[in-house]
Design a protein around this nucleic acid. Structure first.
Lengths: 168, 168
DNA sequence: CGGTATCCACATGGATACTG
DNA sequence: CAGTATCCATGTGGATACCG
């Protein structure tokens, strides 16, 4: 395979950065399991049906990237807990957005469990794009702008293609 | 490598579905380029620095999955345009969520171009989780609930782990 | 329990040449 | 221009045995 562990050739966009960590399919599944409350090596092993060496490798990589932390339990130092860090928890919106897309276009089976507002017990709203005033925005109300046009100077991301011309 | 093209062993969650399509790193990068306005084989080729055969393969797969469509131009049938479908466009929130995460924890360079509200020109709000009334929710205001508890019956996703116990 | 260490299968990816 | 066809390198993943 190509040079998988060289950083992707793009320094100015966050997407390649995210991909470098999440680009491996098992990392995603491990994260999902972690979000659903799994903490131990053998739990992941059983639930995911992943090989030991791969699980070991992926957990180590997630820890390296600061997405999960590894803590031996005080009572039995052989027992180890893996927990999401803040950085890992911050992946929740991305995970949910992907999951919702998969539910919309996949087999069509809404999945379980459902993430709910703890206060009223109601399911959360679909992840979407919102203006700063909170109004939800459809793809037609969006446009690309150069950051420079907003006041701050910056470098390019992709060759300037300011229009979301994907929509006409 | 394992059986990469067997569906991931989970029928009731949308995340594996999404992963099956987006799990390949190049697919992500191609999608990003498409969202930024690229439409042609050689454009992708030049911008992404991907091998011809891989690009060909990934484009075909994206078309297969209904995420992009391939249309020969009426004037010159050799020229082909690749465009995002509705299904592809619906990946935008997930892409943005990942990108924002990457920007927050990556090299820290905010990327270009910036997606803005076409009406007021202001950058969109960060992708986040919202209650049905629109109020933004932090991780501590979230909890997992079984779908059955909401009225509709359903099957399991992962072994029942209703609590987002990741947060305490 | 939570890993390493091996060994092996094969998918992904790069480079390059060729084609309609 | 938009691909195929080939060849080859290596990363990902599975199975299994072993270890502290």
């Amino acid at each position: 395979m190509g040079k998988l562990h060289e950083p992707l050739n793009d320094q100015s966009c966050g997407l390649p950065t995210a991909l470098e960590v999440m680009g491996e399919r098992w990392s995603f599944m491990i994260l999902r399991a972690a979000f659903n409350g799994l903490h131990h090596f053998e739990e992941f092993l059983g639930v995911l049906g992943i090989a030991r060496n791969i699980l070991s490798n992926r957990l180590a990589r997630l820890v390296e990237h600061g997405i999960m932390k590894r803590e031996p339990l005080p009572d039995d130092r052989r027992k180890i807990e893996y927990r999401l860090t803040e950085k890992g928890l911050d992946l929740l919106p991305a995970m949910l957005a992907l999951r919702q897309w998969g539910e919309k276009y996949g087999v069509g089976v809404p999945s379980n469990p459902v993430l709910c507002d703890a206060r009223d017990g109601q399911p959360i709203a679909p992840i979407g794009i919102h203006a700063h005033d909170g109004r939800p925005l459809g793809p037609k109300e969006l446009e690309w702008r150069d950051r420079a046009d907003l006041g701050t100077d910056d470098h390019g991301d992709l060759p300037a293609r300011p229009a979301l011309n994907v929509l006409r």
